[in-house]
Amino acid sequence: MFGTAFAPAKVNLFLHVGPPDGDGYHPIASLLAFADIGDRVSVAPAEAMSFRLSGPFGAGLEGEGRNLVLRAAEALIQAGRRPVAPVALILEKNLPIAAGLGGGSSDAGATLRLLRGAWGLDLSDDALQGLAAALGADGAACLWGAPVMAEGRGERLSPAPGLPDLPAVLVNPGVPAPTGAVYGAFDDLGRFGVVEAPPLPEAFESAEELAAWLSAQRNDLEAAAIRVAPPIGDVLEALSGEAETLLARMSGSGATCFALCTGDFEAEQLAERLQALRPDWWVRRCRLGGPWRSRDESPS
């Protein structure tokens, strides 16, 4: 009973955010894609339940309390309603923390997928999605790592349009943008736009067509995130000024931004140049789309 599951980075291609409702939640409309880079969750037999962090950003999660990986495992045990064998859980944290990439939610989704198989639990996909949704606003969307439209509080999901191959570059300036702080700044600014999802075509034929369509959309949290973490503005300015960039935008509540490019060569050129100019930034070339399930190793 062991295996590894891939937890892809989530990218909000656009993010429309409305004013808070009576419970303090902000309605959203967002088109989500997933990158072919991310974290990994592994499980192995053990004498007692345990959890360990590894990877370049693992130390940043030390001492944070109950990680979403542990919370996902606990939720699955409760839902399964039968004894399960203890396991060792290992989170390889490759994505920056508080980065707008849905890392925690994607880690939780990978854990749910992996442990359902490892423990042989008779839980449907719908039941698994319910557990994921209860773990966070991005939980349901991040469970399968497939492009999706998210609305409401993030729990209302509908199929995304067909997406072309999307070569991209992700850039994080190395500063956190805590979600609560960004939403607080957003409320202070009071710039609430129309939150409804715009009409969507059945499919986009090219990265250029998608970038042109996205240019009429927004990430409503950008201004607030820049107020919380000004280096985000530096990243957006750097990406927007490069010839390879079709579109530059922030993902989620920041601090990671992305550039869509016409091809892999252009994305590689852009990533290499930015990394040379700003070695203090986290820069990764990737492809956006999903799901990247071929990167999962089935439990055995």
Rank of each mutant, 00 (worst) to 15 (best):
A177Y: 00
L189P: 12
N219M: 04
P291H: 03
R218I: 04
L288S: 12
F258W: 04
R284E: 09
D165H: 07
R191D: 06
G152L: 00
Q269D: 08
D125Y: 00
L91T: 15
P167F: 05
R71P: 13
E208Q: 08
L76C: 08
L170D: 05
G80V: 14
A211I: 10
L123Y: 01
L123D: 02
S294I: 07
A271K: 09
A177R: 01
L70M: 12
L200R: 11
N219K: 06
E266C: 05
E64F: 08
A225G: 02
W282I: 06
A267E: 15
L288H: 12
Y25E: 13
R191K: 11
P173D: 14
M250P: 15
W144A: 10
E74N: 13
A168W: 01
L112I: 09
A255N: 01
P27T: 05
S253Q: 07
A99N: 03
E208S: 13
K93M: 03
G109N: 03
P198K: 14
E208D: 10
F2R: 10
A46W: 04
F192A: 10
G58C: 15
T111P: 11
P167Y: 03
A48P: 01
E244Q: 04
A72Y: 03
D125N: 02
V283P: 07
P86V: 11
A238C: 09
G254Q: 05
D39N: 07
W281C: 13
N219S: 09
N172M: 10
G58Y: 10
T256G: 06
P178S: 04
V171M: 08
A203R: 13
I77N: 14
D122Y: 12
A118C: 07
E205Y: 10
N12K: 03
D188N: 06
V283I: 14
E297F: 01
R273Q: 12
T245S: 06
P231I: 09
A197F: 03
P56E: 09
V84Y: 00
D21S: 11
W144D: 06
G152Y: 00
G55K: 15
V228N: 01
L163D: 05
G263W: 04
F265C: 06
L89S: 14
A276M: 11
W292Q: 11
M49I: 09
I90R: 12
G241C: 08
S240V: 13
P173Q: 12
E151V: 07
P159C: 13
G139A: 09
A5N: 08
Q217T: 07
S251A: 12
W213Q: 02
G24D: 04
P27Y: 00
S105V: 02
G130K: 03
S30H: 04
A255T: 05
L260F: 04
T179L: 05
A118Q: 15
F192K: 10
A181D: 10
R40W: 14
A276W: 03
A181S: 15
D296M: 05
A72M: 03
S251T: 06
S30V: 08
R273S: 12
S206F: 01
A212G: 14
L200P: 11
A229H: 03
L101F: 05
G103Q: 11
G290F: 00
P159T: 11
R285H: 05
A185T: 08
R285F: 15
W292I: 12
R81S: 07
A98G: 09
L277W: 10
V228A: 00
A212T: 10
Y25I: 13
F204G: 14
S30L: 06
G38V: 12
